[in-house]
Amino acid sequence: MAHPVGVVRWTGASRVGPPLLLVVVVALAAGPFVVAPQQLFGLVNLFAYVMLAVTWNLLAGYGGMVSVGQQASIGLGAYAVAYLAQTVGLNGFLALPVAAVMAGVVAVPVSFLAFRLVGGYFAIGTWVVAEVFRLLTVQWDAVGAGSGTSITSLSGYDRDVRLALTYWVALAAAAVVVVGSVLLVRSRFGLGLAAVRDDPVAAASTGVGVTTAKRVVFVLAAAGAGLAGGVLALGSLRVQPDSVYSVQWTAFMVFMVVIGGVGTIEGPIVGAVVFFVLQQTLAHYGATYLIVLGVVAIAMVLLAPRGLWGLLAGSRGTTLFPVGYRAVLGRRS
């Protein structure tokens, strides 16, 4: 007869993730000393993809909210950095956290609007919000209206120094987002959020504040996407409304999360790396690149609906991070 010994969070596999993450971040931090500047630029984009995938996964995979409008926050974050750096005169790198907070703050009233809708209506509603933001930006002359604006205030830095700084800031931002998402999913809040995703009615009946949980994750995901948008702006030093508010970002986020494994910590990171590699490899083939992405996504959904990480983790849902709970059962002595 099995006898309960206790509940544990750290298992063999879940001890691997935190030190592995630390090693990877430290190794990546050496990037500017070993990698050519052009590749550094690519890696800045990779870090932004990781942030986008991780935050969209929080929203859809843990919160059950399939948003098609995260580009609203990407655009806000990018424009906030550009505006703060160019017009307000704040250092571009310091503007980044401010941009993330701004994207989060704006998401609060948006959530009251969006939460009136559910399912497919919610998805389309968030897209409409993003389009409204784009149209408002296009009217705003201070940030270059329809043609966008450049961030020139960072030209005081030597080019290589600026690139290295951008790289480190982007890496730090991605690390904060990944660690933050692990802590969030691991917390009491994360447990309640997963309950809300699986069954909101049962979640409420077990004491979980459903709307509050959804609102908190909606705002945090917006802040994360805003941070990613700011990083993209710092990387390219150019912000254009049609590019930062493009719905294509959502397609990329869905791709990364589905390929990697929705509702897992590791999946979106794996998905972001796969997406980045595909993008780098296929960049010269024009539209063919998007066709390949589409075919890969369809094949994954049909053959491995739990994503690449789902394949690796197996049916037991092994995770490298201590986010779950396991009962340890022994024998009665």
Binding site: R188, A194, D198, G324
Partner: peptide, 19 residues
């Protein structure tokens, strides 16, 4: 109405922690 993505233990933990 189980929380299908969570384990049986975690289903109970939701109730024990929140309610």
């Amino acid at each position: 109405r189980p929380f299908g993505g969570l384990t049986v233990l975690e289903n109970l933990l939701v109730a024990a922690r929140f309610a």
